[in-house]
Amino acid sequence: MQKPATATLASEFAELPATASHGPLRIEYRWMNEAAANAPIAVFLHEGLGSIAMWRDWPQALCERLGMRGLVYSRPGYGLSTPRAHDVKWPVDFMTAQARDILPALLDALDINTQERKRMWVIGHSDGGSIALLYAAQHPDELAGAVAIAPHVFVEDISVQSIAQTRQLYETTDLRSKLGRYHADVDSAFYGWNDIWLNPAFRAWRIVDELVAIRQPLLAVQGHDDNYGTMAQIDAIAERVPHAQLVKLDACGHSPHRDAPDALNDAIAAFIAKQR
């Protein structure tokens, strides 16, 4: 098993008990600005191939800008968390299960109480952005607000085409070894994500109707040059959540926190400042 090259000395682990939807899980997590005990919490939800290590320094920089504590964690199958067994396929509703079961169980394990959750922001990227939206819809009274960066709310051809191309790169270039820096079991991470997105059954996946339950402040961000999704994604969010604010970034692809970090941080900071 290849270990990530990025230092992980600051990571801790939470043990989640087995439930009807999953077996026992060991979740890698890390706090930022933990000494600021009275500050609101920002929970960061990574992309489909992400992990704590892959976020690099962006969550820390944003938390310092916002004056918040930060919680980052690697979802099951990613980073140093419990890997996905190689014969297990993620179900079509895997993002709903993450919002419904895994994140609340992690918050419980870390003793994050109801009052802290009411002041909490969820900030997600890509698949993590979709999970942030689903969590906001499922827990409208236990959240201060949400930021969804390049989220998916339905499946577009451009997404499937790019994900198929990524699979070819993974199997024919050094992409696998590069991703191995960020995951203890890189095949667990890659094929869990890739297989479900390329599953024909997943073409019918959509969470647009669930979004009408979102009551708290919502910021949705998309880059004009995103090769995994179009502006139709966040436009669909605005149709279902009229109070949502949209930010559309020029010269920005699928990862605004890497492609346009200053513009992204400015947008998030300004939006959250208006809610305080």
Results as ranks from 00 to 15, higher is better:
I52V: 13
G50R: 02
V43H: 15
M32Y: 13
D266R: 07
D57C: 08
V92L: 15
A42P: 03
T6F: 13
I268T: 01
I237S: 04
G223W: 00
S74A: 08
F94M: 11
D157A: 13
G67W: 12
A18R: 12
Q60M: 10
N265A: 05
Q275P: 00
A148E: 13
P261G: 02
Q222E: 04
A35R: 07
V155R: 05
G145N: 12
M32N: 06
K89D: 15
L264G: 08
I102H: 10
A36G: 02
A267Q: 01
I102R: 11
D174L: 07
R56G: 15
N33F: 07
D93R: 13
M120E: 00
L25W: 13
I214E: 00
R100F: 04
A53R: 02
K248P: 06
T8F: 08
T114M: 05
Y170V: 05
A220F: 12
T230K: 01
I27T: 05
D187T: 07
R69K: 08
L198S: 07
G129Y: 03
D195I: 02
D259L: 00
A137S: 05
R84W: 12
G129R: 05
L249W: 00
L9C: 11
I27R: 01
A99M: 09
D185F: 10
R26N: 09
G180D: 10
T8Q: 11
A105D: 05
M32V: 12
A148I: 05
S51E: 04
D108F: 03
M95L: 15
I163R: 13
A20S: 11
G50L: 11
K274R: 04
D127G: 12
D87T: 10
Q222P: 06
Y29M: 06
A137P: 04
R117G: 09
A220Y: 04
T114S: 08
H224P: 00
E171P: 06
R119G: 03
L218K: 01
E171V: 11
G129C: 14
P242C: 09
K3I: 15
M231T: 07
F44N: 01
P140M: 09
Q115K: 11
G79S: 14
P104Y: 15
A244D: 07
F13C: 10
Y73H: 09
A42G: 14
H139P: 01
